[in-house]
Amino acid sequence: MTSWFAKFLTSSIGKKVIMSLTGLFLISFLLVHLLGNLQLILAQDQGQTFNEYAYFMTHNPVIKFLSYGLYAFILIHAIQGLLLAYNNRKARGDQRYAVKVDRTAGASKSSIYMGSLGTVILIFIVIHMAQFWLQMKLGNTEMVVYDEEPVKDLYTLVAAVYQNIGFVIFYVVAMIFIAFHLWHGFQSAWQTLGLNHKKYTPLIKAVGYVYSVLIPLGFAAIPVIMFLRQQ
């Protein structure tokens, strides 16, 4: 790419724009991901709907292409975020404040801890993907046959994990972290893109708050309900 673009991306505002755009993509991904995963608990058909959905998601070329984009965006968002956190720490200088306060105007306290929240979420994503995605790709997932088509039985894999109360708690806690991350991230992404408007910003904030509660709540409900159903 031309140098002006590289310069833009490496400027402090460009770096934020990267965080904002990848963040917004991940935010929208969460909704898609949740709608699919809700099949785990909504369609009470021993996982057929869910497994077929998973099959579709891993075999449709467009979705496959998007999924590589998703992996890249997760990585970019995480690496850029960590670099920013490192740089920002450096910008404070060698000596840190002896008395720490956390007063903000408009933004929530979670804005201060985005780096830490994000790091925990990153660890969660790694574990999450190792547990399901990697198992599915490389592990020996059982096959089931629907309409003469063999499909990986991801449902059983998920159900097995969610029998473990430890994992259920782990997933629920992780969702709390995601909720806090979103609580700031959603509105912050728009502010970074320059959208701060007397009329629209309150709306963006409201949507953001609802979104950052409902989405993680929906995700958290899955392991909890599956756990309870298996008792």
Binding site: S12, K16, L84, N87, N88, T104, G106, S111, Q191, N196
Partner: peptide, 23 residues
Amino acid sequence: GQCSNITACEAECPKGISVEHIA
């Protein structure tokens, strides 16, 4: 450092300048 829209600046600004200007 880089802004991450924490808004502590606005909270401590003696003139109360809004982060709207950062947007």
